[in-house]
Amino acid sequence: MDRPSALGALLAALDARGYDFVTPTPSVGRRAVERGLSKSEPLRAIFGWSQTFERQDLEPALFDLLVAVDALDQDGDHFRSRVRVSRLAGMLFLHSAFPARASDAVFLGPDSYRFTRFIAQATADDGAMSIAEIGCGAGVGGLAGARLHPAARLVLGDVNPKALELAAINAAHAGIVAETRISDGMAGLHGPYDLIVANPPYVAGESGRTYKDGGDMHGARLSLDWAAQAMQRLNLGGKFVLYTGSAILDGGTDAFRVALEGLVAEASTYRLTYEELDPDIFSGELRREAYADVERIAAVGAVIQRNA
C-alpha cells in the first residue's frame, strides 16, 4: 500500500470509529501532555494530543498503517505518531503532530476554525464555480469552501510538498475533487477564480517554519502581498477572503488595515470589508522584541471583492 492510500485508510478507520478531536492552542497541548489527558481514550491520546503510547495501546491494524508510512517515532517501548488528526467543519484532517517544530510542518489550530467560520460568513450567498486556496496547508480553507459550493472546481496551492500531500489525502477522504499545485503565493495558481481564500503565516521573525513566518510589517507582509496577488486573479464579482493576524500598534493603530485599505484604494474596481474577529490572540508572542511597540495581536477578516 502506498503512502496516500495508507494515510487515507487511517482517516477512514478513525472516521468509522467515531473519532473526534478539536485542536487547541499549543499551550493547552503542552498541558495535556503534562497531565496525560485522554489516556482512557487511546485514539484521542495518540492522534489528537500526540502523546506517547505502547504498542498494545493501539489496534494492530492502525499501528501497521503508521508503520507502512514511516509515521512513528520510537523510544524504547514507547511510540509516538508523527501525524495528528482533527475534525473541522465536519471533516477529518491529517496534519503534523504536536509540537509542530519542523520547517515543513503542516499546522492546524484554533485559527483554522475561525478561518472556516469566516469563509462561511463571507460567502454564504455566493455561487462560486472556481475556488483556490493560497498556502493551503492541510487544505482547511479550500475544502470548507468546496463544501459550501459543491459545484466549484477547487485548486490548492502551497510551497510545501508535505502540505500538498496531506491536503490531497484530506480532500479524497472528504469526497472532494481537488487539484494540488506547488505555488509560492499565487505564482502557480493562474486562475481567474470566483473565490480565493487564504490564512497566511503572520508571525514576525524568522522561526524557519513555513507555516509561521509572515515577514516584515510585524508579520503582515505576506498577507498584504497575497492580497495584491489575489486581486489580479479574481473574476468579475469574485472575492478574496483573507483570515490573518494583525499587530495593533501602541496607540491602537491597525497598520495592516491601513496598508490594505491603501492597496484597494489604488484599484477603483475593488471594494474592501474588514473586521476584527478576535481582539487578542497569540499573546505570548508579545514578550518578543519584534513586538516591542505592539499592544496586542488581533485576528482579522478581510474580503476584497472585484466589482461586477
Rank of each mutant, 00 (worst) to 15 (best):
P4R: 11
A6T: 09
A13V: 10
A13Q: 11
D15E: 15
D15L: 14
D15P: 11
A16P: 08
R17K: 15
F21A: 10
V28E: 13
V28S: 08
R30Q: 03
A32P: 05
V33H: 05
L43E: 11
G48S: 05
W49R: 12
Q51M: 09
L65R: 04
A68D: 05
D70K: 09
G76I: 01
H78D: 08
F79T: 00
R84M: 11
V85W: 03
L88N: 04
A89Y: 11
A102D: 03
V106F: 02
L108K: 01
D111G: 06
Y113V: 09
R114W: 12
T116E: 10
A128C: 15
C136H: 05
A138I: 05
G141F: 13
A146C: 15
R147I: 15
H149S: 14
A152V: 13
L154C: 14
D158F: 08
E165L: 14
A167H: 13
N170V: 13
A174C: 15
G175L: 15
I176G: 07
V177P: 08
L189S: 06
I196N: 08
V203F: 01
G205A: 04
G219V: 00
A228T: 04
A230E: 02
M231L: 13
R233I: 08
N235Y: 06
L236V: 10
G238C: 12
K239L: 07
K239D: 04
F240D: 06
L249W: 07
D254K: 03
D254M: 03
A255F: 00
A255M: 04
V258C: 00
L260K: 02
E261A: 14
E266R: 07
R271C: 14
T273D: 11
T273A: 11
D280T: 07
I281H: 05
E285F: 01
R288H: 05
A292W: 03
I297G: 00
N307W: 01
